[in-house]
Simulated scan of single mutants.
Amino acid sequence: MKRTTINASLLACAMLPLVAQAFGNHQTWTSGFAQGSSEYIILGKGKSQLYLACGDGSRSATLIFTDPAGHDISMDSGKRLLLKIDEYDAVDISDTDSHAGEGSITSAWNHLRNGKQVTVSGENVRSATFTLNGAGKVLPEFGTQGCLSKFVL
Score class of each variant (00 low, 15 high):
110 N>I: 01
70 G>R: 01
140 P>F: 01
107 S>A: 11
126 R>T: 07
138 V>K: 02
131 T>Y: 03
118 V>G: 00
122 G>A: 06
69 A>W: 06
13 C>W: 12
55 G>I: 08
18 L>V: 02
76 D>A: 09
114 N>G: 11
83 L>Y: 08
2 K>V: 14
35 Q>D: 15
120 V>R: 03
40 Y>W: 03
56 D>H: 15
147 C>R: 01
111 H>P: 02
86 D>R: 04
93 I>F: 11
65 F>D: 10
59 R>N: 15
54 C>V: 04
117 Q>P: 01
138 V>I: 08
34 A>L: 11
137 K>D: 14
79 K>L: 14
128 A>I: 06
21 Q>R: 04
149 S>R: 07
19 V>N: 03
49 Q>R: 15
82 L>Q: 12
132 L>I: 00
123 E>D: 14
115 G>D: 02
124 N>A: 15
153 L>A: 11
19 V>G: 05
98 S>D: 10
149 S>F: 03
130 F>M: 04
138 V>N: 10
68 P>W: 02
1 M>A: 14
41 I>F: 00
132 L>A: 05
50 L>I: 00
72 D>Q: 13
46 G>K: 04
3 R>G: 12
24 G>K: 07
29 W>H: 08
11 L>D: 13
52 L>V: 02
87 E>D: 12
33 F>C: 09
127 S>I: 02
65 F>A: 15
31 S>C: 07
104 S>H: 11
127 S>C: 04
90 A>R: 04
107 S>W: 07
83 L>T: 09
52 L>T: 01
51 Y>T: 01
143 G>Y: 00
25 N>A: 05
59 R>W: 15
132 L>C: 03
66 T>N: 08
140 P>A: 03
18 L>P: 05
3 R>D: 15
151 F>Q: 11
80 R>E: 11
114 N>E: 08
33 F>E: 08
72 D>C: 06
150 K>S: 10
37 S>Q: 14
60 S>G: 14
72 D>R: 09
8 A>Q: 13
26 H>L: 06
68 P>A: 09
135 A>N: 05
105 I>N: 03
100 A>V: 05
122 G>V: 01
152 V>I: 13
122 G>Y: 06
94 S>R: 08
47 K>N: 12
53 A>M: 08
117 Q>K: 10
90 A>I: 05
13 C>H: 10
91 V>S: 11
8 A>C: 14
55 G>M: 12
86 D>I: 05
144 T>N: 05
69 A>Q: 15
34 A>F: 10
142 F>K: 04
8 A>P: 10
22 A>W: 07
30 T>L: 08
4 T>R: 13
108 A>T: 05
108 A>H: 07
76 D>E: 03
101 G>H: 12
54 C>H: 05
108 A>F: 07
14 A>V: 09
141 E>G: 02
135 A>Q: 00
107 S>F: 10
11 L>F: 06
89 D>W: 00
22 A>N: 12
1 M>R: 10
70 G>Y: 09
91 V>F: 00
118 V>M: 02
30 T>G: 09
44 G>C: 01
117 Q>F: 04
17 P>I: 04
76 D>L: 04
136 G>N: 06
26 H>W: 12
88 Y>E: 14
68 P>I: 02
89 D>I: 08
125 V>G: 09
4 T>S: 14
2 K>D: 15
58 S>F: 12
5 T>C: 09
